[in-house]
């Protein structure tokens, strides 16, 4: 029993990271219909930037994190303005190609500015808590709490604020939103700013818990899209449930079936869910 609980706790921490990645992807996809493949690389940029500030400049982590998140907001808006806005009215394939090109570009920039070495964001959180035989490292606890906080903040923003209502309106029906006076030109900017900030937060978590290195972002974005499909395309609650389910499934699969096939098993579970709910766990049937 302890082992199952331990595996679930292990899975929640990594699931929290998946949720943040997926939330960024799902808002962009749900509202703008763009498969933003560069999200993983942008997320790694956030992790690298935090590492640079903390390890290279000696800036405390509590200051480096908001700086990186702000940089994420600016980067997100720049991506929307410079990369996606020019092709917004073109065929979907154009945005697809832009997304691929952007991925390579951001990866290249990361490599150029931060080098090819694996880096780990240094923290001083090295205590380990033992709760009834289940161990929880301090850093993982903070990652879980921070992920929960960000998820709650985003949910409140989307559900309770006027801008959030506008975002939902554009996602539901863009034409109707225009008729209701929603400024649809600024919504994509807000969406990309929010999405990229969430990605940066995920990058910081990955960088502190594990490591940032070239290629890690690709794996993250694949998992993010898997969560999107599992939870339901464009569904924010779906991304939250899907991310946690994927994290825990991977952990349980590695612990009780085979570590060599944990990804395969996690994806098999995803396919199994989609057989019965093709719209995903919380997606709306079309």
């Amino acid at each position: 029993m302890i082992e199952i609980l331990q595996q679930i706790v292990n899975g929640i921490a990594i699931g929290g990271v998946y949720v943040l990645i997926a939330l960024g992807l799902t808002t962009v996809f749900g509202i703008l219909g763009i498969a933003h493949f560069a999200h993983g690389s942008v997320s790694m940029f956030g992790g690298y930037l935090t590492f640079f500030l903390v390890a290279g400049q000696g800036i405390p982590l509590v200051i480096a994190i908001p700086v990186a998140l702000t940089a994420g907001v600016v980067l997100g808006m720049a991506i929307e303005l410079l990369a996606y806005r020019p092709v917004r009215k073109a065929s979907h394939i154009n945005a697809f190609i832009v997304a691929l090109g952007l991925t390579m570009m951001v990866e290249g920039l990361n490599l150029e500015f931060f080098g090819h070495e694996q880096v780990v964001i240094p923290t001083s959180f090295d205590r380990v808590f033992n709760i009834g035989g289940v161990t929880l490292p301090e850093l993982r606890l903070y990652v879980i709490l921070a992920a929960a906080l960000l998820i709650a903040a985003m949910t409140i923003f989307v559900e309770r604020t006027k801008t959030g209502q506008a975002i939902r309106a554009v996602a539901e029906n863009r034409d109707a939103a225009i008729l209701m006076g929603v400024n649809v030109r600024t919504i994509p900017l807000v969406v990309f700013a929010m999405s990229t900030a969430l990605g940066v937060a995920a990058g910081i978590m990955v960088g502190a818990l594990f490591a940032i290195a070239p290629g890690i972002g690709e794996g993250l974005v694949i998992k993010g899209f898997a969560v999107l499909i599992l939870g339901g395309l464009g569904s924010i609650p779906g991304a939250i449930v899907g991310g946690i389910v994927l994290g825990i499934t991977e952990s349980l699969a590695a612990g009780f079936v085979s570590s060599a096939y944990k990804d395969v098993i996690a994806f098999l579970v995803m396919i199994f869910v989609l057989l019965f709910r093709p719209q995903g766990l919380l997606g709306k049937a079309s």
Binding site: I2, E3, Q6, Q7, N10, G11, I14, L209, F210, A211, G215, I216, G219, E250, S251, L252, A253, A254, G255, F256, S258, S259, A260, K262
Partner: peptide, 20 residues
């Protein structure tokens, strides 16, 4: 014999199993 891939960084599932 527990496995990991080159890019894996989270080994807690395997280590939890080994602990048991």
């Amino acid at each position: 014999r527990e496995a990991f891939a080159l890019k894996d960084r989270d080994m807690t599932p395997q280590l939890t199993k080994i602990r048991g």
